[in-house]
Protein backbone atom coordinates (compact mmCIF):
# COMPACT_ATOMS: atom_id res chain seq x y z
CA UNK A 1 0.00 0.00 0.00
CA UNK A 2 1.19 3.50 -0.81
CA UNK A 3 2.21 5.88 1.96
CA UNK A 4 -0.76 7.38 3.78
CA UNK A 5 -1.82 10.92 2.89
CA UNK A 6 -1.61 12.04 6.47
CA UNK A 7 -0.07 10.58 9.56
CA UNK A 8 -0.48 12.41 12.83
CA UNK A 9 1.76 11.23 15.64
CA UNK A 10 1.38 12.24 19.28
CA UNK A 11 0.05 15.67 18.39
CA UNK A 12 -0.22 18.10 21.30
CA UNK A 13 -1.82 21.52 20.96
CA UNK A 14 -2.02 23.57 24.12
CA UNK A 15 -3.55 26.96 24.83
CA UNK A 16 -1.59 29.09 27.25
CA UNK A 17 -4.34 31.15 28.82
CA UNK A 18 -4.20 33.44 31.81
CA UNK A 19 -6.14 30.87 33.83
CA UNK A 20 -3.67 28.11 33.00
CA UNK A 21 -2.67 25.70 30.26
CA UNK A 22 -5.56 24.13 28.36
CA UNK A 23 -4.51 20.87 26.75
CA UNK A 24 -7.00 21.04 23.90
CA UNK A 25 -5.28 18.28 21.95
CA UNK A 26 -3.20 15.86 23.96
CA UNK A 27 -1.33 12.96 22.40
CA UNK A 28 -3.49 12.45 19.33
CA UNK A 29 -2.36 9.99 16.65
CA UNK A 30 -4.15 8.81 13.55
CA UNK A 31 -3.60 7.96 9.92
CA UNK A 32 -5.63 8.87 6.86
CA UNK A 33 -5.06 6.70 3.79
CA UNK A 34 -5.40 7.99 0.27
CA UNK A 35 -9.04 8.33 -0.81
CA UNK A 36 -10.36 7.40 2.63
CA UNK A 37 -12.70 9.28 4.92
CA UNK A 38 -11.88 9.59 8.61
CA UNK A 39 -14.73 10.65 10.89
CA UNK A 40 -13.40 12.61 13.86
CA UNK A 41 -16.18 12.57 16.42
CA UNK A 42 -16.60 14.29 19.75
CA UNK A 43 -18.73 16.67 21.75
CA UNK A 44 -18.12 20.39 22.24
CA UNK A 45 -14.69 21.04 23.68
CA UNK A 46 -13.33 17.59 22.90
CA UNK A 47 -10.56 19.06 20.76
CA UNK A 48 -11.76 17.78 17.40
CA UNK A 49 -11.77 21.17 15.69
CA UNK A 50 -8.43 22.19 17.21
CA UNK A 51 -6.98 18.97 15.79
CA UNK A 52 -8.16 20.08 12.34
CA UNK A 53 -6.80 23.59 12.79
CA UNK A 54 -3.45 22.19 13.98
CA UNK A 55 -3.04 20.14 10.81
CA UNK A 56 -3.65 23.08 8.51
CA UNK A 57 -1.56 25.40 10.71
CA UNK A 58 -4.32 27.78 11.75
CA UNK A 59 -4.06 27.64 15.53
CA UNK A 60 -4.14 31.17 16.86
CA UNK A 61 -2.26 32.36 19.96
CA UNK A 62 -2.44 31.69 22.85
CA UNK A 63 -2.66 28.24 21.26
CA UNK A 64 0.40 26.43 19.93
CA UNK A 65 1.33 23.02 18.62
CA UNK A 66 3.74 21.98 21.34
CA UNK A 67 4.63 18.47 20.32
CA UNK A 68 4.23 15.61 17.92
CA UNK A 69 4.45 15.18 14.18
CA UNK A 70 1.99 15.94 11.40
CA UNK A 71 3.34 13.95 8.47
CA UNK A 72 1.66 15.02 5.25
CA UNK A 73 3.00 12.88 2.41
CA UNK A 74 6.07 12.38 4.51
CA UNK A 75 6.68 16.06 5.35
CA UNK A 76 6.29 17.21 8.93
CA UNK A 77 3.88 20.16 8.88
CA UNK A 78 4.68 20.98 12.48
CA UNK A 79 8.23 21.91 11.46
CA UNK A 80 7.97 23.61 8.08
CA UNK A 81 8.13 27.38 7.66
CA UNK A 82 5.04 29.57 7.36
CA UNK A 83 5.96 30.16 3.72
CA UNK A 84 6.01 26.47 2.89
CA UNK A 85 2.77 26.02 4.81
CA UNK A 86 1.12 28.78 2.81
CA UNK A 87 2.16 26.96 -0.34
CA UNK A 88 0.33 23.84 0.81
CA UNK A 89 -2.69 25.47 2.37
CA UNK A 90 -5.55 25.88 -0.11
CA UNK A 91 -3.45 23.95 -2.60
CA UNK A 92 -2.70 20.43 -1.35
CA UNK A 93 -4.67 20.73 1.93
CA UNK A 94 -7.99 22.56 2.11
CA UNK A 95 -10.46 23.21 4.86
CA UNK A 96 -14.24 23.58 4.88
CA UNK A 97 -15.78 25.32 7.87
CA UNK A 98 -19.15 25.01 9.55
CA UNK A 99 -19.97 28.57 8.56
CA UNK A 100 -19.21 29.12 4.86
CA UNK A 101 -18.80 32.81 5.57
CA UNK A 102 -15.49 31.87 7.24
CA UNK A 103 -14.30 31.04 3.73
CA UNK A 104 -16.14 33.68 1.73
CA UNK A 105 -15.54 37.39 1.69
CA UNK A 106 -18.95 39.11 1.81
CA UNK A 107 -17.91 42.12 -0.25
CA UNK A 108 -16.31 40.29 -3.17
CA UNK A 109 -18.08 38.52 -5.98
CA UNK A 110 -17.69 34.76 -6.07
CA UNK A 111 -15.69 34.86 -9.32
CA UNK A 112 -13.16 37.31 -7.84
CA UNK A 113 -12.60 35.06 -4.86
CA UNK A 114 -12.37 31.85 -6.85
CA UNK A 115 -10.06 33.21 -9.54
CA UNK A 116 -7.82 34.70 -6.86
CA UNK A 117 -7.60 31.28 -5.21
CA UNK A 118 -6.69 29.58 -8.48
CA UNK A 119 -4.03 32.16 -9.31
CA UNK A 120 -2.52 31.99 -5.85
CA UNK A 121 -1.11 28.55 -6.60
CA UNK A 122 -1.16 28.15 -10.36
CA UNK A 123 0.40 30.16 -13.14
CA UNK A 124 -2.51 30.26 -15.54
CA UNK A 125 -4.32 33.03 -17.39
CA UNK A 126 -7.30 34.70 -15.76
CA UNK A 127 -9.54 33.15 -18.41
CA UNK A 128 -8.31 29.63 -17.61
CA UNK A 129 -8.80 30.38 -13.92
CA UNK A 130 -12.39 31.46 -14.57
CA UNK A 131 -12.92 28.27 -16.56
CA UNK A 132 -11.64 26.22 -13.66
CA UNK A 133 -13.86 28.12 -11.20
CA UNK A 134 -16.91 27.52 -13.37
CA UNK A 135 -16.20 23.82 -13.78
CA UNK A 136 -15.74 23.38 -10.04
CA UNK A 137 -19.02 25.16 -9.25
CA UNK A 138 -20.75 22.81 -11.68
CA UNK A 139 -19.07 19.86 -10.02
CA UNK A 140 -20.58 20.66 -6.61
CA UNK A 141 -24.03 20.89 -8.13
CA UNK A 142 -24.60 24.62 -8.53
CA UNK A 143 -27.01 25.25 -11.40
CA UNK A 144 -26.03 27.80 -14.09
CA UNK A 145 -22.49 28.34 -12.74
CA UNK A 146 -21.75 31.09 -15.27
CA UNK A 147 -24.37 33.38 -13.80
CA UNK A 148 -23.69 32.38 -10.23
CA UNK A 149 -20.02 33.32 -10.57
CA UNK A 150 -21.14 36.92 -10.84
CA UNK A 151 -23.12 36.83 -7.59
CA UNK A 152 -22.12 37.97 -4.15
CA UNK A 153 -22.17 35.48 -1.26
CA UNK A 154 -25.30 37.02 0.30
CA UNK A 155 -27.24 36.21 -2.86
CA UNK A 156 -26.84 32.48 -2.17
CA UNK A 157 -28.87 30.38 0.25
CA UNK A 158 -27.09 28.67 3.16
CA UNK A 159 -26.76 25.36 1.34
CA UNK A 160 -25.53 27.01 -1.87
CA UNK A 161 -23.01 29.06 0.08
CA UNK A 162 -21.62 25.88 1.61
CA UNK A 163 -21.36 24.41 -1.90
CA UNK A 164 -19.36 27.45 -3.00
CA UNK A 165 -17.06 26.99 -0.02
CA UNK A 166 -16.62 23.34 -0.95
CA UNK A 167 -15.94 24.32 -4.56
CA UNK A 168 -13.20 26.70 -3.40
CA UNK A 169 -11.67 23.90 -1.36
CA UNK A 170 -11.70 21.70 -4.47
CA UNK A 171 -10.17 24.22 -6.88
CA UNK A 172 -6.70 22.73 -6.70
CA UNK A 173 -7.81 19.12 -6.34
CA UNK A 174 -6.22 18.86 -2.90
CA UNK A 175 -4.92 15.60 -1.49
CA UNK A 176 -6.54 16.26 1.87
CA UNK A 177 -9.69 18.11 2.85
CA UNK A 178 -10.46 18.89 6.47
CA UNK A 179 -14.20 19.44 6.89
CA UNK A 180 -15.25 20.94 10.20
CA UNK A 181 -18.98 20.31 10.76
CA UNK A 182 -19.82 21.55 7.25
CA UNK A 183 -23.43 20.31 7.26
CA UNK A 184 -24.38 20.97 10.87
CA UNK A 185 -26.17 24.25 10.14
CA UNK A 186 -28.02 22.94 7.10
CA UNK A 187 -31.48 21.44 6.70
CA UNK A 188 -31.66 17.65 6.32
CA UNK A 189 -32.55 17.58 2.64
CA UNK A 190 -29.71 20.00 1.87
CA UNK A 191 -27.34 18.06 4.12
CA UNK A 192 -28.26 14.93 2.16
CA UNK A 193 -27.40 16.67 -1.12
CA UNK A 194 -24.01 17.85 0.15
CA UNK A 195 -23.10 14.50 1.66
CA UNK A 196 -23.94 12.83 -1.65
CA UNK A 197 -21.70 15.28 -3.54
CA UNK A 198 -18.83 14.81 -1.10
CA UNK A 199 -19.13 11.05 -1.29
CA UNK A 200 -18.99 11.18 -5.07
CA UNK A 201 -15.96 13.48 -5.04
CA UNK A 202 -13.98 11.41 -2.57
CA UNK A 203 -14.63 8.31 -4.65
CA UNK A 204 -13.68 9.88 -7.99
CA UNK A 205 -10.74 12.15 -7.11
CA UNK A 206 -8.88 10.07 -4.52
CA UNK A 207 -8.94 12.98 -2.09
CA UNK A 208 -8.63 12.01 1.57
CA UNK A 209 -11.11 13.55 3.94
CA UNK A 210 -11.19 14.29 7.64
CA UNK A 211 -14.82 14.83 8.57
CA UNK A 212 -15.11 16.53 11.95
CA UNK A 213 -18.57 16.25 13.49
CA UNK A 214 -20.58 15.58 16.61
CA UNK A 215 -23.12 13.59 14.61
CA UNK A 216 -22.49 9.85 14.74
CA UNK A 217 -25.23 9.23 12.18
CA UNK A 218 -23.44 11.26 9.52
CA UNK A 219 -20.16 9.46 10.22
CA UNK A 220 -21.92 6.09 10.06
CA UNK A 221 -22.99 6.72 6.50
CA UNK A 222 -19.95 8.57 5.22
CA UNK A 223 -16.69 7.51 6.84
CA UNK A 224 -14.39 4.52 6.49
CA UNK A 225 -12.68 4.97 9.84
CA UNK A 226 -13.73 6.70 13.00
CA UNK A 227 -11.79 8.32 15.84
CA UNK A 228 -13.71 9.31 18.95
CA UNK A 229 -12.29 12.19 20.99
CA UNK A 230 -12.95 13.04 24.61
CA UNK A 231 -11.29 15.84 26.55
CA UNK A 232 -8.48 16.32 24.03
CA UNK A 233 -7.62 12.67 23.56
CA UNK A 234 -8.66 9.96 21.17
CA UNK A 235 -10.37 7.34 23.29
CA UNK A 236 -11.21 4.91 20.53
CA UNK A 237 -10.55 4.45 16.85
CA UNK A 238 -11.03 1.85 14.19
CA UNK A 239 -13.23 0.82 11.31
CA UNK A 240 -16.61 2.61 11.40
CA UNK A 241 -18.81 -0.48 11.36
CA UNK A 242 -16.69 -2.29 13.91
CA UNK A 243 -16.66 0.64 16.33
CA UNK A 244 -20.36 1.46 16.00
CA UNK A 245 -21.48 -2.16 16.16
CA UNK A 246 -19.34 -3.12 19.13
CA UNK A 247 -17.76 -0.12 20.85
CA UNK A 248 -14.91 -0.90 23.22
CA UNK A 249 -14.70 2.36 25.17
CA UNK A 250 -17.50 3.10 27.65
CA UNK A 251 -17.70 6.67 26.31
CA UNK A 252 -18.25 5.53 22.73
CA UNK A 253 -20.86 3.11 23.94
CA UNK A 254 -22.59 5.86 25.94
CA UNK A 255 -22.51 8.19 22.96
CA UNK A 256 -24.11 5.59 20.71
CA UNK A 257 -26.71 4.87 23.38
CA UNK A 258 -27.54 8.59 23.54
CA UNK A 259 -28.57 8.79 19.90
CA UNK A 260 -32.30 8.26 19.47
CA UNK A 261 -32.74 5.54 16.89
CA UNK A 262 -35.38 3.39 15.37
CA UNK A 263 -35.12 0.36 17.64
CA UNK A 264 -35.15 2.35 20.87
CA UNK A 265 -38.43 4.20 20.29
CA UNK A 266 -40.15 5.33 23.45
CA UNK A 267 -37.63 3.72 25.78
CA UNK A 268 -35.44 5.89 27.97
CA UNK A 269 -32.13 6.56 26.24
CA UNK A 270 -29.03 5.09 27.78
CA UNK A 271 -27.60 8.38 28.95
CA UNK A 272 -24.13 9.29 30.16
CA UNK A 273 -24.41 10.95 33.59
CA UNK A 274 -22.71 14.25 34.35
CA UNK A 275 -21.04 16.52 31.85
CA UNK A 276 -17.76 17.05 30.05
CA UNK A 277 -15.05 18.17 32.46
CA UNK A 278 -13.32 21.51 32.04
CA UNK A 279 -10.06 21.10 30.16
CA UNK A 280 -8.48 23.71 32.38
CA UNK A 281 -8.00 21.44 35.33
CA UNK A 282 -8.50 17.88 34.28
CA UNK A 283 -8.12 15.48 37.17
CA UNK A 284 -5.22 13.02 36.81
CA UNK A 285 -6.01 9.65 35.30
CA UNK A 286 -8.72 8.83 32.81
CA UNK A 287 -10.70 11.97 31.95
CA UNK A 288 -13.92 9.99 31.59
CA UNK A 289 -13.55 8.43 35.04
CA UNK A 290 -16.17 10.55 36.82
CA UNK A 291 -18.89 9.66 34.29
CA UNK A 292 -17.89 6.07 33.63
CA UNK A 293 -19.92 3.10 34.86
CA UNK A 294 -16.80 0.88 34.81
CA UNK A 295 -14.45 3.22 36.65
CA UNK A 296 -12.27 1.61 39.29
CA UNK A 297 -9.09 2.19 41.26
CA UNK A 298 -6.93 1.57 38.19
CA UNK A 299 -8.51 4.55 36.37
CA UNK A 300 -6.70 6.97 38.67
CA UNK A 301 -3.68 6.30 36.47
CA UNK A 302 -3.75 7.51 32.91
CA UNK A 303 -4.64 4.79 30.40
CA UNK A 304 -2.48 4.48 27.28
CA UNK A 305 -4.07 3.90 23.91
CA UNK A 306 -3.52 0.29 22.88
CA UNK A 307 -4.47 -2.08 20.14
CA UNK A 308 -6.99 -4.41 21.69
CA UNK A 309 -8.24 -6.10 18.54
CA UNK A 310 -6.66 -5.97 15.09
CA UNK A 311 -7.21 -2.43 13.78
CA UNK A 312 -9.07 -1.40 16.91
CA UNK A 313 -7.44 0.92 19.40
CA UNK A 314 -8.87 2.00 22.71
CA UNK A 315 -7.72 4.10 25.64
CA UNK A 316 -9.28 2.28 28.57
CA UNK A 317 -8.36 -0.12 31.36
CA UNK A 318 -11.76 -1.78 31.32
CA UNK A 319 -12.89 -1.96 27.71
CA UNK A 320 -16.25 -3.46 26.86
CA UNK A 321 -15.05 -6.77 25.52
CA UNK A 322 -14.72 -10.25 26.82
CA UNK A 323 -11.01 -10.61 26.39
CA UNK A 324 -8.86 -12.16 29.09
CA UNK A 325 -7.13 -8.82 29.62
CA UNK A 326 -10.18 -7.54 31.36
CA UNK A 327 -9.69 -9.73 34.36
CA UNK A 328 -6.14 -8.50 34.82
Amino acid sequence: MAAPTLEVRNLRTHFFTRAGVVKAVDDVSFTVERGKVLGLVGESGSGKSVTGFSIIGLVDPPGRVVGGQILFQGRDLARISEEEMRDLRGNRIAMIFQDPMMTLNPVLRVDTQMIETVLAHKKVSAEEARQRARDTLGMVGIPSPDERLKSYPHQFSGGMRQRVAIAIALLHEPDLIIADEPTTALDVTIQGQILAEVQKLAATTGTSLIWITHDLSVVAGLADDIAVMYAGRIVEKGDVSAVLDAPLHPYTSGLIGSVPSRNKRGEPLRQIPGMTPSLLNLPPGCAFRSRCPRAAEACLAEPEIRELLPGRQVRCFHPLSETSEQAA
Binding site: T189, G192, L216, A220, G221, L222
Partner: peptide, 20 residues
Protein backbone atom coordinates in the same frame (compact mmCIF):
# COMPACT_ATOMS: atom_id res chain seq x y z
CA UNK B 1 -34.53 9.28 2.95
CA UNK B 2 -32.24 12.26 3.66
CA UNK B 3 -31.87 11.61 7.38
CA UNK B 4 -28.51 10.07 8.27
CA UNK B 5 -29.05 7.09 10.53
CA UNK B 6 -26.61 5.52 12.90
CA UNK B 7 -27.75 2.04 11.84
CA UNK B 8 -26.74 2.64 8.26
CA UNK B 9 -23.17 2.05 7.10
CA UNK B 10 -21.26 3.58 4.24
CA UNK B 11 -24.29 4.21 2.14
CA UNK B 12 -25.12 6.43 -0.79
CA UNK B 13 -26.96 9.46 0.49
CA UNK B 14 -30.16 9.98 -1.40
CA UNK B 15 -30.89 13.32 -2.85
CA UNK B 16 -33.97 15.50 -3.03
CA UNK B 17 -33.41 17.87 -5.87
CA UNK B 18 -33.59 21.60 -5.46
CA UNK B 19 -33.80 23.96 -2.53
CA UNK B 20 -36.51 25.07 -0.21
Amino acid sequence: ASVPRIESRKRAFSVVKGEI
